[in-house]
């Protein structure tokens, strides 16, 4: 369904993605992991056409997405930071998106699920971070689209909302959808993900099932296995696989490369 070939992108001098290849052909939940600044959000935004890659190809159902826009009707997107027009109310925002997308929606069901009825007539600027994220989730889940892309969906959610979100993702997976999630919460990955896509320095350095990752790293828990990956151990051989984090101390987990300005996100 989604094929990415040789994707490269740099912001000024900062190479965020370098010759990345990824193919997702079967449904399931794919957790995109990696340290801050490893290019997760940029990868997602490239798929959505919000960031224009320097080179490389992205195909959706065999057709290139360059300068295309219709394919976005098949993708639900949950952005990392819920940034909405501040002076609209929740209802006006939902109405606007429904008007623009013009697809069958089940907004009421999701609104009820996350319990945001009391805020429907409040301005988005006055909402708390968690409530904004719930509105964000309504926008992402109200359409029955074959692809769902979520950037940090758990941010700011209370435990009840988190459980509802997990149930919702399970239900969508049952329908045979492709669900792409970035997160830093390892419990969430362990519980939800079918496959892990590990990004480091703009390349995919591991791709496979959770069990395979644990076996490869010889660690009993996912958290420890990921920590090993982040330290540059047990990575898949790649063009730069010879270099470990020890040789590249500035590219380790705790010292990310130059920060990308927030406006880029």
């Amino acid at each position: 369904m989604i094929q990415i070939q040789n994707l490269s992108k740099s912001f000024h001098k900062n190479q965020v993605l370098s010759s990345l290849d990824l193919e997702i052909s079967q449904p399931g939940v794919f957790a995109v992991l990696g340290p801050n600044g490893s290019g997760k959000t940029t990868l997602i935004k490239c798929i959505l056409g919000m960031v224009i890659p320097d080179s490389g190809q992205i195909r959706y159902q065999g057709a290139s997405i360059t300068n295309e826009w219709k394919y976005r009707a098949a993708i639900s997107y949950l952005p990392q930071i819920a940034r909405f027009p501040e002076n609209l109310t929740v209802n006006e925002l939902l109405q606007m998106i429904r008007d623009i997308r013009d697809q069958a929606a089940r907004a009421e069901e999701i609104i009820h699920l996350f319990g945001i009825e009391p805020w429907l007539n409040s301005r988005l600027g006055t909402l708390s971070g968690g409530t904004r994220q719930k509105v964000n989730l309504v926008l992402a889940f109200m359409y029955d689209n074959p692809v769902i892309i979520m950037d940090e969906p758990t941010a700011g959610l209370d435990p009840v909302a988190l459980i509802r979100l997990k149930d919702l993702i399970q239900a969508e997976r049952q329908k045979g959808k492709i669900i792409l999630v970035t997160t830093h919460v390892m419990n969430f990955v362990e519980e939800m993900a079918n496959e892990i896509v590990f990004l480091l320095d703009g390349r995919i350095r591991f791709r496979g099932e959770l069990a395979a990752l644990k076996r490869r790293c010889g660690e009993p828990t996912l958290e420890r296995a990921i920590a090993k990956l982040l330290q540059g151990e047990c990575l898949e051989a790649g063009p730069a696989a010879g270099k470990t984090a020890a040789e590249n101390p500035d590219k380790g987990f705790f010292q990310p490369k130059t920060e990308i300005p927030c406006s880029r996100y």
Binding site: L48, Y71, R72, P79, F84, P85, I97
Partner: peptide
Amino acid sequence: EFTELLLAQPV
């Protein structure tokens, strides 16, 4: 914000 929201839509 409005622009970013729109960019993810089929427009």
